[in-house]
Amino acid sequence: MIWDILGIWIAAFLTIAILSFIFGDNPIYKLAEHIFVGVSAGYGVVLALNQAIWPSIQMGLMPNQHFFIKFMTIIAIILGVLTLIRLEIFSYIFPSIVWLSRIPIAFVVGVGSGIAIVASIQGFIFPQVSATFLPILSPNYAIDLSSPLNFLNSFLLLIGPFVILLGVITALVYFYFSTEQRGVLLGIAKIGILIMMITFGASFGYTIMARFSLLISRFYFLLSDWLNLLK
């Protein structure tokens, strides 16, 4: 119980300390910022060692483990150690071997790119392209006249695929730079800009909603959990 109360007071202090940035940079804000960075880094390192690195090494080098798994674990350990050479202290002490740290980076980039390229084609481009065209080629929506609201909903569902197709084509035309944009091409590109502006606006609106959610929840915490004013 006492720890819960202490936790609430610490959280309240840190919340107010961070919100004090509204009056400009100040020592209280700095204190909260440094506590956050320090605790995050420390907890992150311990968790990575406990949950990821140590169990993987233990499992990979178990006596009854298959030779191939053991071999791959040793390769992974070597690559991990080579990454550490990138630390500034090593570059001062052994500047001639710093280049070795590029091997694990190349490995990560190579594997990451290989997976990402296939995944984005298979899991993003193909499904999204078909989702752009299929509703138009095989529409299965009907206008519902039972009430004004249902009519509006069904009408929006009906024109939605056409708006999406218009957005995709006009935005693609905007990024078509192989020829000078003028005449019809320029007109289509301008519609593309308009569509993109609407998209950015929607994204920004959502971002505002997210930030306000955070702010409101902190005020709710201060008024409810800390000050106990909200019954």
Binding site: S130, A131, I164, S203, M209, S213
Partner: peptide
């Protein structure tokens, strides 16, 4: 909410069955 606009196309393409966006 920040991520929601990027995820809605997956719903439209029926790659996911539902999206709960923001507060």
């Amino acid at each position: 909410a920040v991520m929601a606009p990027g995820y809605f196309p997956y719903y439209q393409a029926k790659q996911v069955v539902g999206i709960v966006g923001g507060l």
